[in-house]
Amino acid sequence: MTKVNSRFTSLFVTIFVIIFMYLPIVMLVTMSFNASRYGGKWTGFSLKWYETLFRDHSVINATMNTLFVALMATIFSTIIGTLAAWVLNAYKNSNVQRLHYGLIYAPLVVPDVLMGISLLLMFVSLKVDLGLTTVILAHITFCVSYVAFTVLARLQDFDFALIQAAQDLGAGSFRIFIKIILPLLLPGIIAGAMMAFTLSMDDFVVTFFVGGPGSTTLPVKVYSMMKHGPPAIINALSVVFMAVTFTVAIIGNVLLRKKSSPSRAVAQH
């Protein structure tokens, strides 16, 4: 009886949380097809906000900026983060790596506002012009930690005996790298890269601080539209944006969940 009760309580809260989580999103998607200009009341189905959206040059420009920044941030943070993960894993017991670990962990804890303002202050002190470059530098910085820990998680499951076995069987370093290390590590690296991409695309706060004229990204655009612009277009923009991030996130998630199968790598060899 008691068991039934506690399950009932937790089920009740769970259902409440699910409604709480999805109600705003459902409303948003519904409203994007609303003919009314100011939301609120439903006045009929319409696609006109999507048409307006796709004709708006500043939105298209912001989209290009977002994708460019995300791409650059992903490339650099993936390289830096993967190297960091490799060395953290390879020299687990060194004191240098303990400090290194702390240095990579700290950006995960620090709020965006602090990261944004501190980078802004540094760029201003150095008299660097704010723009796409500063945005990219900032994005790389917060992406590195996430990539490093994603790859590190993958490395911790990595069976180094496989390398030994391959060496015993006479494989050269190159073969080992291509046939064993890369296939086993690649899903982790790709998952890290996907995460960097979504984090960069999602970021508003840091971009707001370190961005300048000409570096408006989609989140910054959404922000200024929310503050000043016609609200109806944002609904449509949100739904399009949501569709894009969902796609990237789903791909990333599938890759992350794909279990490495060491036996297959050995068999291939």
């Binding site: 705003p24 999103i25 409303m27 948003l28 979504t198 695309m201 999602d202 508003f204 989609l218 989140p219 959404v222 922000y223 929310m226 944002i234 949100s238 944006f241 949501m242 991030t245 969902f246 996130a249 789903i250």
Partner: peptide, 10 residues
């Protein structure tokens, strides 16, 4: 997976 600002907007 939806953008942070869009969740606020919702």
């Amino acid at each position: 997976w939806t953008n942070f600002l869009i969740r606020i907007f919702a």
